[in-house]
Design a protein around this nucleic acid. Structure first.
Length: 649
RNA sequence: GCCGGUGUAGCUCAGACUGGCUAGAGCGAAUCCUUCGUAAGGAUUAGGCCGGGGGUUCAAAUCCCCCCACCGGCUCCA
């Protein structure tokens, strides 16, 4: 923040978002720059970004070549600024209502904001009162004033705020002044930026209370964190709350329970899911889908045990690098470990034979169950577990063969994601600082991955330094039905494992060469992917996955016989007859509740004509359908793995 | 692991603050009545180590202590 006195009067060039340059006096504020661009923009300026960092409009620009963005009312960044101000209102409200509260920090987040307090003893029932006070503060429309204050004066003002003083001492190292923001009787040490007045905060809602360590470090005291969110108006807030309710409705733990898909029970231990028949039915379909893809692509299935002697884990490096996440135990005089990854087993299989360059690539596949001892508090439903299954594949290829193999894998991943109608982004993660392998081979591998991506006209981000220590990788992030992003499929090159296991093949030159290993997963893990699918479809699985594909509903007892005869016509499917003694309305309701894709209704009319009525979850219905016609359609739909029922579309 | 919350029938929940009859309700299930034409027809019955263990008390789902599990949070630097 301090400026070099000699450079105060020279000009610097700033770079605007459209790439153009603007010459301004060094030390001009963000607001000055905005006025240079146009007076209208200048007066609308709320805050700015300098080289990506959100700053107050009063922030001077000192660096030549700085990238400047202007934040105005209505911009995406404006929401972040406003939420920061909302956090201030929260702290002000709390200080009005409770005595001797220690303030910590209160930043905006992706979804809202929070403020951390110490010496504050409240529970969720107090949130209503605090929120009401915040609304009063917003209603009062206090001006939010920015003030530059010397460090010494700041020390005096913050005399009874221990955490703020701690922060102040750090900021004091960077300059001799700090900034305060105030509104009415309340003030806070804060870099900003903020909106002009509290009245600009449109709609706020306090959501929950949680605990957090001061500065996220568990050695520090624990504080009371209040989470809230703010929007420009009530309708945006309502939309956000609706989205949250939607996500809650789709919660795979709730739907998994309702549909009897899986359970995680006390007796069996945490993070160890049990799959019930309907859940395993879905998993088997998912398994057979990748199995088809793998076999078509020339993969060979292998199988390895769940546990190995730690000798193997020492050879692979897991013992050294991954031990904390492994289940390790003694058996007699030997030490064993549950496998956290499948690659060492596969490498060991490869190493058991000798190979010619003509044999490569070798492609091994396994639905391999692995065990990773995650922190207890991190476990959650199927999204974070101790035991999970990877649709794993390991390829042993010649360096010049990388490109065509990666291409093939990307085709397979595209096939998988498009089958579920999932859009995705691709990112290339390159060499991290700590890594193994020669420069030459890294360069070659990265350029091969790049050329694959370029050749496919794939748009991709480069994530520098984000690769695995053993090789670069391509990650796929896909988006579910309500816009959430998930990581799953991945292709990773590995120069480390072949080295550690001393893998080799004999080349054309009759010399030994080291193959490159490729790790790949199309789903990622079955558990994670299953979870995403449950939430993506909200349990309304497409016919090829649905545990019960068709339910036949006889209208009265008289039609039960015909219902079973129809059922026999659907032998190749998962079809049931609802022969309970209840009304048609009730049977239809039950079929909906059970999320069965198709209902076949049979009464006297159908029985006389020898046909059926077909209904789906969207309540569409067609009467007088020939049994063959529907059965052929359903067979096609299942064989093609269509992502939704289409008979009545 | 740490902080807060939660744990009662297959499911969703009441009862707990202020200890006291036999722990309730709805859904689901079973049985019976009804034989039904498009999202809940009626009746009856069964179903509970009130998460586990220990303690206080004449008496504990309820109060105290310990443990377990689940949910949320613990990265996003005034």
């Amino acid at each position: 923040m301090s400026q070099d006195a000699n450079s105060e009067h020279d000009d610097i060039a700033v770079v605007l978002p459209d790439g153009s340059e603007l010459h301004v006096e060094r030390g001009s504020t963000v607001e000055d720059v905005a006025y240079e661009i146009g007076p209208g923009l200048g007066s609308d300026t709320v805050a700015g970004r300098i080289d990506g960092e959100l700053v107050a409009k009063e922030q001077p620009v000192t660096e030549d070549g700085a990238r400047i963005e202007i934040v105005t009312d209505g911009a995406d960044d404006y929401l972040e600024v406003m939420r920061h101000s909302a956090a201030h209102c929260l702290a002000q409200a709390v200080e009005r209502l409770y005595d001797d509260v220690q303030l910590a920090i209160g930043p905006p987040t992706d979804e809202g904001f929070y403020y951390d307090f110490d010496d504050l003893d409240i529970d969720e029932s107090d949130l209503g009162e605090i929120e009401a006070e915040m609304e009063a503060i917003i209603e009062a429309d206090y001006d939010i004033e920015r003030e530059e204050v010397s460090v010494d004066e700041a020390r005096e003002r913050l005399a009874d705020q221990e955490y703020k003083l701690e922060l102040l001492e750090e900021f004091a190292e960077n300059g001799e002044t700090v900034t305060f923001y105030s509104q009415d009787e309340w003030e806070d040490l804060c870099a900003g930026p903020h909106v002009e007045s509290t009245g600009e905060i449109g709609a706020v809602k306090l959501e929950e209370i949680a605990a957090a360590y001061w500065r996220g470090d568990e050695a520090n005291p624990m504080q009371t964190r209040v989470y809230g969110t703010a929007f420009e108006d009530e309708s945006d807030l309502e939309e956000y709350l609706e989205r949250k309710r939607e996500a809650e409705k789709r919660d795979h733990r709730k739907i998994g329970n309702e549909m009897n898909l899986f359970s995680i029970q006390d007796v069996t231990g945490p993070g160890l899911p049990l799959y019930h028949p309907p859940g395993k039915t879905i998993l088997r379909e998912l398994e057979s889908f990748v199995e088809d893809l793998n076999l078509d692509a020339g993969y060979e299935y292998v199988e390895t045990p769940h546990v190995f002697k730690t000798d193997l884990w020492q050879e692979s490096g897991h013992y050294e690098n991954y031990q904390d996440d492994m289940f390790i135990f003694d058996v007699g005089d030997d030490e064993y470990g549950l496998k956290p990854m499948n690659c060492p087993g596969h490498a060991t299989i490869f190493d058991d034979s000798s190979w010619s360059y003509r044999d490569l690539p070798i492609r091994y596949a396994e639905n391999g169950k692995v065990y990773r001892k995650e922190q207890r508090g991190e476990l959650s439903g199927l999204s974070r577990v101790w035991a999970f299954t990877i649709d794993d594949g390991h390829l042993f290829v010649r360096p010049e063969g990388i490109k065509s193999e990666v291409e093939q894998i990307m085709d397979m991943i595209d096939e998988v994601l498009s089958t579920f109608n999932l859009d995705y982004d691709v990112a290339l993660a390159t060499r991290p600082e700590k890594s193994v392998g020669s420069d030459e081979i890294w360069e070659k591998a990265e350029s091969q991955l790049e050329s694959v991506l370029d050749a496919r006209d794939e748009e991709y981000d480069i994530e520098p330094g984000d690769g695995a220590f053993y090789g670069p990788k391509i990650d796929f992030a896909f988006e579910d039905a309500i816009g959430r992003r998930w990581d799953g499929p991945t292709v990773q090159l590995d120069f480390n494992m072949p080295e550690r296991f001393d893998l080799s093949y004999v080349g054309k030159d009759n010399e030994e060469h080291q193959p490159v290993m490729i790790h790949r997963a199309l789903y990622g893990s079955y558990e994670r992917f299953f979870m995403v699918l449950i939430e993506h479809f909200e349990g309304n699985f497409p016919p090829w996955l649905a545990p019960e594909q068709v339910r036949i509903l006889p209208i009265s007892d008289e039609n039960k016989g015909y219902a079973y005869r129809v059922r026999n016509e659907f032998d190749e499917f998962r079809a049931e007859v609802d022969d309970r003694d209840s009304t048609l309305e009730r049977k239809i309701r039950a079929a909906h509740d059970d999320r069965v894709p198709y209902q076949i209704i049979v009464g006297d009319n159908e029985e006389e004509d020898g046909d059926i009525s077909v209904r789906d979850r969207s309540e569409s219905q067609e009467h007088g359908v020939e049994i063959d016609e529907f059965r052929d359609h359903l067979r096609t739909e299942v064989d093609q793995r269509r992502s939704a029922p289409t008979f009545l579309k």
